[in-house]
Design a protein around this nucleic acid. Structure first.
Lengths: 347, 347
DNA sequence: CTGAAAGCGCTAACAG
DNA sequence: CTGTTAGCGCTTTCAG
């Protein structure tokens, strides 16, 4: 590929001239070459190589009305994203899938509440063909925004407490949080634990509430004082554990709604000289790398395939885009991915 | 803003018609409105609002040759990105700065060695006006690729051992790794430690080598057996610590080239019953959230403003783009950001 | 200060 | 199978 100085790139016109064909034929070859005779195809290909031709994306988009790009919108102004490998992994999965389909990833980070306007404008502006969105807090405006933008969107995580997988309006990919929580609590129960506490996540996140529901599925009559609320951070986990210990010193097991909180809880237990898992068994959620393996003792936790979820989100969206082009505008169906119990030393 | 169904968006033509002006005037208003009489400006603005007009980006790019987007290229196929908040923070900073200048962030993740071709094509394809790149391993092709793509680029981290801040060819933003390392080692020395070991990072990363140089600046005559190589991961830090302890059981301090390795080292020390900081003082690097604060004891370490670095990278690039438009194609100068010592309990 | 006209580079009917 | 012809929606001289 010859070096390019910007602003002087060869056009299709130039390629056509060099190959001795019309612009239309050159275009056909560049776009796959169906229905063009072999010798001409070769000539055009040669011209493309010699000239270092690269199609002008803007011109192509202008006529095809496809940008070949999708937005990834992350509505998380909090510091949490900084210490959360969750997004990195999910994005890695998305990126892999998009790349495999020659689609670009435009990252839209919400920096503050006023940003939703900007996002809305961008999504409606024909910059992208679709959107992949992470709407962590149920009160945020994202689902409404993508709906109004009139472009297909797939969510990472169930976007609202009322959304269900059958819902055609807001397709999403989510782990089986409730089922995973049941796995965790059932393990604790099978271990013979009788006072199983739960450190739940923030009530405005569906994943937190789903995990709480799973806990309640297994322990419908649990003492309410055995439930403490955290914020999915290490610190909040420590605080919740302290609270729990004050309220119910006799507890013999804890299910934390994520590994970060579990590690905070672990620290408090260690400080108090309470042995894990002997006196208190502990189970986390996420199987977060490297947290889960590196705590002392390593965490028994619930694994979910985060990168796979990202890939799946992208696949669903790309499918919708293809169908959109074909005219049959079906929204994709939501998918719930499975969770598995990973047994380590903490329970 | 009225709801949009895709493919039926109002054009500038429609706005002009509704406002009773020509397309040219409408365009002028949409782009700032200089040199248009007030009443007409208002009419056009009203029409824009009523119609919910949003400029077509592709059409605009086609004529202006500016995309309003920059690529962020991350050449890190390894798993490291998953557990490294470094990128998240850096990207957060970049995103803030770009957003403030109405510029979009296109994320390009390198998934494997074959991907560089794809990246090169994209960068040359007129999709973006410039690139922000992270080239962690000195042997990768990124600097060459951005150079040939003919678009301005700014690097995060010194891209090669030979690159220096005065070098006009490859502008970069990097922390003062060497100076930070000196800070760390000098502290240990001032504490009266006499056998100060170093766990260094991979030799193909300039940040690792710069930190090693800083160590050597303070301890030019250090016993080579006091230096062990890690890979910036927790596990590798643990391995290196084990090695060090075998070779020099009498060591009384360790400077680890990042917090992740420091935490691995800490685990090994704890397992051996070696008290920190009493028997062995430990200093990390990065002040990584939440690792540094959550270890037991919390890490004394070197802080760098990662988000600030990201912001700075974006600012340098945007400056170059503006100058590019003005015709005076100056490349930005590199910047080295300062590091500070954060004293906690491990040293 | 405003409008008319040209054209950015490409694809997609439509003829031939 | 290939070429000709129209635009896609916008900015930008250039006249008026």
């Amino acid at each position: 590929m010859p070096e390019q100085s910007p602003g002087s790139r060869p056009t299709l016109e130039a390629v056509a001239a060099r190959a001795g064909v019309s612009r239309a034929t050159a275009s056909r070859v560049v776009n796959g070459g169906d229905g063009v005779r072999k010798p001409l195809v070769d000539k055009v290909r040669a011209a493309v190589d010699e000239l270092g031709y690269i199609p002008n994306h803007a011109a192509r988009t202008l006529v095809t009305r496809r940008t070949g790009a999708v937005a990834v919108v992350i509505a998380e102004p909090e510091i949490r994203i900084f210490s959360d490998p969750f997004f990195s992994q999910q994005i890695r999965g998305i990126s892999k899938e998009l790349t495999a389909h020659d689609t670009q990833l435009v990252l839209l980070l919400v920096e503050g509440p006023g940003d939703f306007d900007r996002i809305a404008r961008y999504l409606s502006g024909g910059h992208v063909d679709g959107a992949l969105a992470f709407s962590l807090h149920t009160d945020d405006a994202l689902p409404e925004i993508t709906r109004r933008a009139g472009i297909p969107a797939v969510y990472g995580g169930r976007p609202s407490p009322t959304a269900d997988p059958g819902d055609q309006a807001v397709p999403f990919v989510d782990a089986d949080n409730r089922g995973g929580a049941r796995l965790a609590v059932r393990l604790l129960k099978d271990l013979g634990r009788e006072r199983i506490a739960h450190i739940c996540g923030p009530p405005d996140q569906t994943s937190a509430m789903d995990r709480l529901d799973g806990y309640r599925d297994v322990l419908p009559d649990a003492d309410p004082a055995l439930i403490a609320e955290g914020a999915f951070t290490v610190e909040s986990g420590a605080r919740a554990m302290t609270e729990l210990l004050e309220r119910r010193p006799g507890l013999d097991a804890v299910f934390a709604a994520n590994d970060l909180m579990a590690s905070g809880a672990l620290r408090v237990l260690r400080e108090r000289g309470i042995s894990v898992p002997e006196q208190v068994a502990l189970v986390g959620f996420d199987d977060m790398d490297p947290v889960a393996k590196e705590t002392d003792p390593p965490l028994t936790t619930i694994n979910q395939d985060i990168e796979g979820q990202g890939r799946l989100m992208a696949r669903l969206l790309l499918g919708a885009l293809d169908r959109g082009r074909a005219g049959s505008g079906t929204t994709p169906a939501s998918v719930i991915t499975s969770t598995t119990l990973v047994r380590r030393a903490s329970a």
